[in-house]
Design a protein around this nucleic acid. Structure first.
Lengths: 209, 209
DNA sequence: CAGGTTTTGTACCGAGCGGTAGGATGAGCG
DNA sequence: CGCTCATCCTACCGCTCGGTACAAAACCTG
């Protein structure tokens, strides 16, 4: 057992609470008073554990990225590129509008724009999003159900763009059905855009040829 | 001529400078010191003219919306829905990556998430975006080159979502070509998705039947 | 129980925030 | 010029910000 007075809170639990505050108010808009209140701990405990507001944010975002975003990435295990894209977009749309946490996505709500001294924060978030896009691209590059000559990088960017746009919409109050209807259009369009041997016309992925 | 000491600055010019600061740093991240420095005026002049930081923001955003966004809306004058969508997306992508102002879009950079006392600001921005989406929907609902039964509301949302995602990407450093490649995919997909009598297969709009 | 160690809570720090008071400044007008 | 008026500028307001000193409290070991 560790020596000294035992900690009265769970580190990961308070990180989740902190993430929610950053999510709802952005990095600049999340004050220490609100953070400590939501986390249920007081300032010195926060600083002893995490060091600074920025470090707290990094930790909270890292945890968010490892848990919530990893969920979306599971979509990439689907057997075809078409299915991977669809599951990615649909599970994202669901996650963006679940009631368990603020609407939208911490990677975007956290701070697209920050005060000059907090510019790092925007970079951290952008890096996180870029990682997801890279994972998407990697999956698509391994696909054998895409038309020859398809620009997988641009396709990954397109899918990620759509997801980011949905996050913006969700933060502004769009419903789950609203987002899914947008995904419907995207998937129907993609199904017809690729060669017929790759994407079936009714949205179901089919084996090549 | 008006009486008293004449104003030493142009109201609209300083609004543009203010918009840039909000654009780059968000509402919460834009301090009065930085605003006055960029605007080239001092605090009392700012308060005498605009009343408060929030009012300054509203004015700056209104001007932005009337000038920059109106440009994108001009795309809706295109003769067909397909052309309107394409011109809207392409001119947006260009505007998001021009060097004349910060990358991305003030409607999003300004503050998706704000501190609790500034929640109005996020609402103002969301309303602006919703207006654009409504204009898009209105244009599409007048189109006669869309397949019967097309959900124009969802289509407008899809297009707007893509544009918002591009804004997020642009803010993170995506190049103009990056965004246009994403538009390429969207337009190619849409061209094949709708019935052939509506959208030609090579991306050129054609008259209905 | 005493001693050592870590966390807890209160109360505070300097700095920067958004916002303002009040005199100096510069224009039109007689 | 002297008067009037709106604007400009210096200096300041109360407040909240992110961050910290310090002592009481709670656990372990002996």
């Amino acid at each position: 057992m560790s020596i000294g007075r035992p900690r009265a809170f769970d580190e990961e639990a308070v990180l989740d609470r902190a993430a929610e505050v950053f999510w709802r108010h952005g990095y600049d808009g999340a004050s220490l008073s609100e953070l400590t209140r939501a986390m249920g701990i007081n300032r010195p405990s926060l600083y002893a554990t995490f060091g600074s507001k920025e470090e707290l944010f990094r930790r909270a975002f890292a945890r968010y990225h490892e848990t919530k975003v990893a969920n979306a990435r599971a979509a990439l295990d689907q057997p075809t590129a078409y299915a991977a894209i669809e599951v990615f977009l649909r599970s994202s749309a669901d996650a963006l509008t679940t009631g368990d946490h603020p609407p939208g996505c911490l990677s975007i709500q956290g701070g697209l724009a920050c005060s000059p001294e907090n510019a790092h924060v925007a970079e951290v978030l952008a890096t996180g999003r870029a990682d997801t896009e890279a994972a998407l691209e990697e999956r698509l590059s391994r696909a054998d159900d895409l038309p020859d000559g398809m620009d997988v990088r641009a396709l990954a960017r397109f899918v990620m763009t759509l997801s980011e746009g949905h996050a913006v919409h969700a933060a502004a109050g769009a419903s789950r059905d609203d987002l899914q209807a947008s995904v419907d259009i995207a998937m129907r369009a993609l199904a017809h855009s690729a060669s017929r041997r790759s994407f079936s016309s009714d949205g179901e992925p089919v084996a090549a040829e």
